[in-house]
Design a protein around this nucleic acid. Structure first.
Lengths: 118, 118
DNA sequence: TGTCTATATTGACGAACGTCGATGTTCGGG
DNA sequence: CCCGAACATCGACGTTCGTCAATATAGACA
């Protein structure tokens, strides 16, 4: 995903307080993408979920692995898992009655790299 | 800041679905710290502010540099700047009538590193 | 002193968020 | 075929968030 894109740079002739640029700022649409990913992680419970999942072998865990350490109700845990899935940090694979959530490899590094280049 | 800390690991004798651990998960208090920092960046306008500030020479810009490209009212811009300051991503230095906001060196790398180790 | 300019603060409002209880759904075992 | 277990979805509630108009503050300059 390209981070530094075209940005409609308005004429810089005006104010006296404005310093010159050294590079292009992030494009608004890319900013929204980054913000959406960060928002998915910007919750203590979800940070812990990602960490707990990553701590298990194979980097996957079922809901029953999460509910007790988090101290949250089962619907709330499922809600957070859904948010993390839709943001691309977790995948779900149902085996029998259990639903196993796995960390998407490189997803955390990807957003971390984006942060560095912002 | 230590990321992998002691975590009250409950007895793992119970369920059949639970996979073993390979490391300790993040401590709840650290998760809250990470989440608080991410929440400060989890907004399109604030991502753009950080990017625009970082794009200027010396990695600093005044409010007048931000208001027009963001397309937000001046109070809203000031509000976002305050949030980013309190989260430790920006500093403020007033020179004359203008307020210059500068990127705190390494603050983005710090949170990026935290994300990798979560 | 008084005015103008740049920025901060306040108060208000609608939208989004985190949480829960209740209910729905799906699967395995008797 | 029915029951129980694991998980998802729904509906509701209180809180937080992003935004703005109005107002306050602080500095530059005449």
């Amino acid at each position: 995903m390209p981070v530094a894109e075209l940005l409609p740079i308005t004429d810089v002739s005006a104010a006296a307080c404005c310093a010159p640029l050294t590079k292009q700022a992030i494009a608004p649409s890319d900013a929204e993408t980054v913000a959406r990913a960060l928002k998915a992680l910007a919750d203590p419970a979800r940070v812990r979920i990602v960490s707990i999942v990553a701590s298990h072998v194979g980097q996957e865990a079922c809901v029953c692995d999460l509910q007790e350490p988090l101290g949250l109700s089962q619907p709330t845990v499922s809600h957070h898992l859904k948010v993390l899935m839709e943001a691309g940090f977790l995948t779900r694979s149902k085996r029998g009655t259990w639903a196993y959530y796995a960390l998407v490899p490189g997803s955390l590094d990807k957003i971390a790299d984006l942060l560095r280049t912002v």
